[in-house]
């Protein structure tokens, strides 16, 4: 029982981070039918920038409360990532808006390689440690344990996702985003400045990525110039699992993938008689991706409403 509950907690925490990153993939895909492969690297940049700020602050003002230091890291990382996302959209994707679909895809991969190398030049190849500034509380719950950091991640991720749903359903910008996703031409006939809506989509996705990057680095206690690759690929798999282009799908897919990984890693040793250990955790995302693409390419929630003539 306790192991089961423990895996459930770990899976939900990890999954809610995947969901935040997956939302960025799915929002951009919903509007542009473009897979922004640089999105994982934006997450990485968020983590690296936040860690630099947090590290510097922790050194300069050791007495400051950890939550404040963390907040400062986020306050810097979010605008940096938003600016980066806007820049990438403007320079790398917008000029290719009417090009064959392969072109922006290749550009996306190019941009992510550039970002990795820029990060490596700035921060080097070593792991950046997350300073011990956060509350280290650990609570016991029916034999499983949950840390303060895990609780904070769960609450923050849930709040952000609820806000996003509200924004997309109820606000003028949200309505413009949905209209643009359904038809760019008709949206522009309604007076929607489609380029601004697309830019806003990149900005929102990048802000979510920044938060997710900080969460991951707080959870694992480190950040690294290459962390965006695996994280991005997993979040992309989660988005495809839920049905790419569908916001609820990205959330569901993220949570499911987190659970699959966590339970998979917990039981893989038993299943293979000890041949494979929990270090094979990362492989599940790719099994999921392949299985979805083979058996249900539209994903779990990716069924389209019938569109009559």
């Amino acid at each position: 029982m306790d192991i089961f509950l423990q895996q459930l907690i770990n899976g939900l925490v990890l999954g809610s981070v995947y969901a935040l990153v997956a939302l960025g993939y799915t929002m951009v895909y919903g509007i542009l039918e473009l897979i922004n492969f640089a999105h994982g690297e934006i997450t990485m940049m968020g983590a690296m920038v936040a860690l630099s700020v947090i590290g510097a602050l922790a050194l300069a003002a050791p007495g400051l409360p950890g939550v404040l230091v963390l907040g400062a890291g986020l306050v810097v990382a979010i605008p940096v990532c938003v600016a980066l996302g806007l820049l990438i959209e403007r320079v790398a994707y917008r000029p290719l808006r009417h090009a064959p679909r392969l072109a922006p895809l290749i550009t996306a991969i190019g941009v992510s390689i550039i970002l990795q190398n820029v990060a490596m030049l700035i921060w080097g190849k070593q792991y950046l440690p997350f300073p011990a500034i956060l509350p280290q509380g650990r609570h016991t719950l029916y034999g499983a344990s949950i840390t303060d950091v895990q609780i904070a991640i769960l609450l923050l991720a849930t709040a952000i996702m609820l806000l996003l749903i509200l924004m997309v359903q109820k606000t003028r910008l949200g309505r413009a985003m949905r209209a643009t996703a359904q038809s760019r031409q008709v949206a522009s006939l309604m007076g929607v400045d489609v380029n601004r809506v697309i830019a806003a989509t990149f900005a929102i996705g990048s802000a979510l990525a920044a938060v997710a990057g900080v969460m991951v680095s707080a959870y694992y206690g480190l950040a690294h110039y290459y962390m965006g690759f695996l994280l991005g690929l997993k979040a992309f798999s989660a988005a495809v699992l839920g049905g790419i282009g569908n916001l609820g799908g990205a959330m569901l897919g993220g949570l499911l993938l987190g659970l699959i990984e966590s339970f998979g890693a917990g039981y893989i040793g038993d299943l293979t008689g000890g041949f494979l250990g929990s270090n094979y955790q990362d492989v599940f995302a790719f099994f999921v991706l392949i299985a979805v693409l083979v058996f249900r390419p539209s994903g779990l929630l990716g069924v389209r409403v019938v569109e009559r003539a």
Partner: peptide
């Protein structure tokens, strides 16, 4: 205001 050929309603709204 243009009402386009094929009506152009937003089907999922």
């Amino acid at each position: 205001t243009l009402v386009p050929e094929g009506r152009g309603v937003f089907p999922r709204m």
